[in-house]
Each structure stands twice: as C-alpha cells, then as structure tokens.
Design a binder for these strands. Structure first.
Lengths: 205, 205
DNA sequence: CCTCGATATGACAACCTTGTCATATTTAGT
DNA sequence: ACTAAATATGACAAGGTTGTCATATCGAGG
C-alpha cells in the first residue's frame, strides 16, 4: 500500500497521480505500463513516486482499490431485486449496470480488459479472487430450477459460464461501438437462443 | 519476407531459427518478444538475424506463414463433410480438429492466443483477415434453416459468434487441463443448451 | 592460388526501463 | 529565528531493448 507520505498529500495532487495511473494502465498492460509515463503525466519527480509507492505493483494495487471504492459508491443503491425476476432478468439488469459503468468510466473498463489480457504472475493472482459473482449467478440458476423455470438437466455452472462469456463479448462490443440499442437487441437475441434453443421443436429429441 | 540469404541456409539451421521463434513468440506477445532471446536460442549472431529478417515484424510474418503451411499440410485430407450433417455436427468436427491441433502443436495454439491478447497495430491488422471461417459457418446455419432444422428467426451471424466464442473458451480450457473427456462433455452440454434452450417448455412463450 | 561476392560477427549507438540515494527544499514546532 | 523532521528532486547505476556497420571469415570460380 502507498506510504503515509502519499496519503498526507493534498487531495488534488493525489488525484493528479491517480489520473495519471488511470491513463497509463488503461492504455497498457501492467507489464508494459511505464512509471516514466506516469510521473511525467502526474508532474512529479521520479524520487517522489518511490516515496509514495514501493513499486509498480504497489501503485497498481492502489489504483484498483480506488476503482473498487468508486464502483461500490456508484452501485450501492442498486442491490435489491424483484422476487419474481428470473436469472435472465437479473442478468440483463447486471448487463445494464455494466453498460452504465462503461459509459461513465470507460477507462476503468479498459483497465479491466487489460487485466484479462495480462498473463503476468501478479495480475493472474489478482484475478483469482474475482469469481464470487459467478457463484451468485449459479445460485440464481439453481433457484430457478427449483421454481421450474429452468430445466433440471442444465448444469448451473456451465450456464453461468456461458452467460458470463457472452457478457464479456457484448461489453467489448459496446465499448468499441457505443451502440446501445444495437447491443441490447443483440443480447436479447442471444438470450432468446439460450432460453428456447436454436433448433425447431421437431428437432428437440 | 525473409531474405534470400535466409532461404539459402541449410534446412537444419533454418529450423533452428524457426524453433527459437516458436519458443519466444509462444511465451511472449509480439511486442514483448525479444530478438535477443531468439538469437540466443537459435545460436546465431545479432548481425545474422538482421541479415535474414528486416526486423521483428518480418520474422513474425515468416513464423506465421510457416505455421499456416503446416496446418494446411496436416488438415489437407479432412475437408469433405457428410451431406446429412447439421451445422452442429460440423462444429463438433471442427472442434475435434482444433483439439488435435493443440495436442500436436501446443505452442502454435499459444502463439495464437498471444495474438488475440495483443493490441498492437501490427497484430490487429493481421487478425482482421481471419474471419473467413465465420462466414462459412453462417452459411451452414442458413442451409439448416432452409432444411427446417434451425428456427428461421435465428440470426445466423449471432449464432455463429456464439459458437465461436464458446469454441475459444473450450479450447483454452483444454489447453490448460488436457482433459479431453471432460471437455467433450462440457461442450456437449453447451451445445444442448444452444439447441434446445435452457428453460422448460412451459416457459417458451 | 587468388579474388570477389556471400555470409557471419559482435561492438556500438541510441534509446528505453526500474529502483536508489545523496542532496535540496519545504514545513512544523519551539 | 532556529531546528528537526518530512518531503521533493534528478543524477545515476544496472539492466534491458532494437538496428547498424565495419570487419572477418567462408566458398566457389577463374
């Protein structure tokens, strides 16, 4: 974690540094990101950087923790869900949240995708702890199986994986095209397939 | 493309260099790959490298072209398909081929994934020309719609994208776990969902 | 044997990177 | 105003990167 010296800084300066980190890490992988770039953009000296952070990893951890804070702050109200919703409704709700997040903080989204592309030891470890929401969705699927909405034969984990990988692709699409309506339609179509299948009834044997 | 000097080399030496390229580019992104590593592994001098290749890009293009050659060589016989097959059958056949490819040339698979992870101008351009098989699958889906196997409402392009993104994930899984049976089961389950849907009949409204 | 074109070589320049550290400056307390 | 601690700074070492180039070696034909 950053040093006391860093937290003693004026907020404005801390923000300057934070912003520089966001810019650098949204454009480059962790390993490719350059401290030189960050200190230049933040207008601080090399020595100061190392007075604030132990190293690049320390700096990155700080960046992530700030991002998580902001995200929690933004979504603290939207937690409850309607009892009648199916997992698909919740999925679409989650998707909308993610879209909104991309709209207001596109660079955070980029930082996330850069993480996914990074195979360094350091980043892989960080991503490991990120699988909680997968469990949550699997539990929703099980609930809907009990309710008789989803077929009992379906493996909740596999369906969850499908939904998540679709989500990832769709968000990427949105990020590059910013076509909200098109994206929604696209996603709807995919969910329609996952719900009802792609083959005709006669072929459901 | 490589120089004449390079092609005048003895086959064994050319292979030495090729192997060094494979090793380096399967472990690192194009931008992260180091010519120093390659010349060390290939046991050639720095000067020689630049006598053979114009630069790293040139070297990479050579590597890719060799890989494509090998792939064509390996799959030259398995092209025909049964007239009664559905797109899903062909999909599974394609998947099996891909699995086989990973088994015999795991490093080539790695080079491919590293490409997908690379956002450099150079690599992105290369990937652009890689979408032909997508069209092929979409055409198969259209054919099966005519045959009454796949519902007319389904968008062939979207279904193709789903199949491909699933394919990618499954191959990655196989690469890391090498669990062929598990993988086949997994894939079967996913295809079952895409064929018949995940919800119960009563919910197909 | 000798010569000339083809090929091999590693030193080098120029440019990056990270992390350290002696020194300078600012700030706070007395 | 003076002191002491906190903070800021950029030169530097040590390592990496790519691409160039003068020089050395090799090989084949005359």
């Amino acid at each position: 974690m950053p040093t006391n010296t860093f937290y003693n800084l004026e907020e404005s300066k801390r923000k300057q540094i934070f912003d520089a980190c966001v810019d650098e890490f949204s454009l480059h992988t962790f390993s490719e990101a350059s401290i030189n770039q960050i200190i230049k953009a933040a207008n601080i000296s090399r020595g100061s950087f190392y007075q604030y952070f132990a190293d690049k990893e320390d700096c990155y951890m700080y960046l992530l923790s700030e991002m998580v804070k902001e995200k929690m702050e933004m979504f603290k109200d939207v937690v409850g869900s309607n009892e009648n919703d199916t997992v698909f409704d919740e999925y679409e709700a989650m998707f909308d949240k993610a879209i909104r997040w991309i709209e207001v903080k596109p660079k955070y989204y980029q930082i996330g995708s850069k993480m996914d592309m990074d195979n360094s030891e350091f980043i892989r470890k960080l991503l490991k702890g990120n699988l909680a929401s997968l469990d949550y969705f699997a539990s929703l699927i099980r609930r809907d199986q009990q309710r008789g909405i989803i077929r009992k034969e379906i493996d909740p984990v596999i369906l969850t994986e499908m939904l998540f990988s679709i989500n990832q692709k769709a968000l990427m699409n949105f990020f590059y095209n910013r076509d909200f309506e098109g994206m929604k339609k696209h996603l709807h179509h995919i969910l329609e397939i996952i719900r009802k299948g792609s083959t005709t009834e006669e072929n459901h044997v």
